[in-house]
Structure formats: C-alpha cells, structure tokens
Simulated scan of single mutants.
Amino acid sequence: MARPTLIPNSDGASFDTPPLVTPRNHVRPTYAAPQGPRFCATLALDLGTTTGWALRSHDGLITSGTASFRPGRYDGGGMRYLRFTNWLTELDRLSGPIAAIWFEEVRRHAGTDASHIYGGLMATLTAWAELRGVPYEGVPVGTIKRHATGKGNADKAAMIAAARTRGFSPADDNEADAIAILLWALETKGGVA
C-alpha cells in the first residue's frame, strides 16, 4: 500500500505537524494550588490566528505562550482547525488532563475574516471539550480587562503592562490576554469552569 504524500505548509513542515508553540513563562503563583485527585490543568485561551494561551499545571506552575494557526500556502480551509485540534490534544497529553478551559468571549470583531476565524476556532474548541467532558466557559472581554487593569476598555499596551506587573513576560497582547483570563479564572472562580 502506498504511503500518502504529505503536503508542506508555509514553514516547510507537513500538514499534520502541530504549529510552533512558544512558551514564555514559568511562574509559580503566590497562592496555593488546590489539592486532590480531581485537580488537573486549567487552560486559558485568547482565540485567533495567533492564539495566546496560559496553562496552570497540576503543581501550580503557570506557563504561557502563543501558537500560530496561520494557514500554509497549500492548505485547505479546514487545516487551521485540524491543527488547532491536534495542538489541543497534544497540550492535554503533555500537561496532564485539562480540567477546565476558559476563553475570551468576543462579541464584536473588526472584520469579517476575524469573526469567521474566531467562530471556527471556538466551534473546534467546544467540540473538542465536549468529546472529552472538559468544562469550558467564555469570559467577556470587558470583564478580563477590568480585572487586569481596572478599566473595561484597556488597550493592548495596558494589558501587556498588567501582565508584566504580575511577573510575566508576554510576547504580545494575545499572550497577555490569555494570562489575564487565567488569573481571572483562578482568582474569581478557583479555576473551575
């Protein structure tokens, strides 16, 4: 039987290769990690072509970064979402089982393409979580910004500065937003969706 040909994406990797994940931080929180067999990892996401993520592992270590889901030159329309699914599965495998997922709930987008991409990523995320029985919840943008900066309409620079004051070094606003979502979830909901 012939082996299928893998079509390369823009960075030369095959289509089934997960996107580059760039972890940025390894920060221990100042509050105690919950104990018990039920506690696993808590994941926060800022969905988009460049997805910001922050993960609190079972031992309380917070790691964050960005993952790019930009389509390659020869990719079909669904490859972005297939890569996102594979990335979530790998993150779940490497971090221990994910116990809860929090994501930024965007109600308005600047453009049509951004809204389509967000909707596709959110649909992929919620289907992935439903299949595994992982609770998930969206957090309104204003709630995240107000918790991080005190202003519900804070700009990108203010979100990055707020993450830095908490001891993180976000590479961009996507990562800063994911950190803010995770900290909001841990401080107001205990990380449980």
Score class of each variant (00 low, 15 high):
I179W: 00
A158C: 11
V134A: 14
H116E: 02
M122F: 11
A129K: 07
A180G: 15
V141E: 15
T126Q: 15
A157N: 11
H116T: 03
I160D: 02
A154E: 00
I179K: 02
L183H: 04
E175R: 03
T126A: 13
H116C: 09
F168Q: 10
V141Y: 04
I160T: 09
P140T: 07
G133K: 14
I144L: 04
R132V: 02
E137V: 10
R132W: 07
A158N: 04
I179E: 07
G167I: 08
G138W: 00
G138I: 01
A171V: 09
P140A: 12
R166L: 13
L131R: 04
A162I: 07
T165D: 03
I179C: 13
T126V: 07
A158D: 11
T143G: 01
A157V: 14
A162M: 03
P135R: 04
G119T: 11
T124R: 12
A162Q: 06
R164P: 01
Y136A: 12
G142Y: 07
S115G: 08
A129L: 02
G119Q: 07
P140D: 05
A148D: 14
T143H: 10
L131F: 06
A127K: 09
T124D: 05
A178P: 10
G167L: 12
Y136Q: 14
E175I: 05
I160H: 01
E175P: 08
H147G: 04
G120T: 04
K156E: 06
E175G: 09
A176Y: 03
R166I: 03
K156S: 08
G150H: 12
T143A: 11
R146D: 03
K145A: 00
H116S: 06
I181P: 00
D172L: 09
P140F: 00
A171D: 13
I144D: 00
R164Y: 02
A162K: 05
H116N: 07
T165K: 03
A176V: 11
A176T: 10
T124A: 14
A158V: 04
D173M: 14
H147C: 09
A176W: 11
P140H: 10
P170R: 02
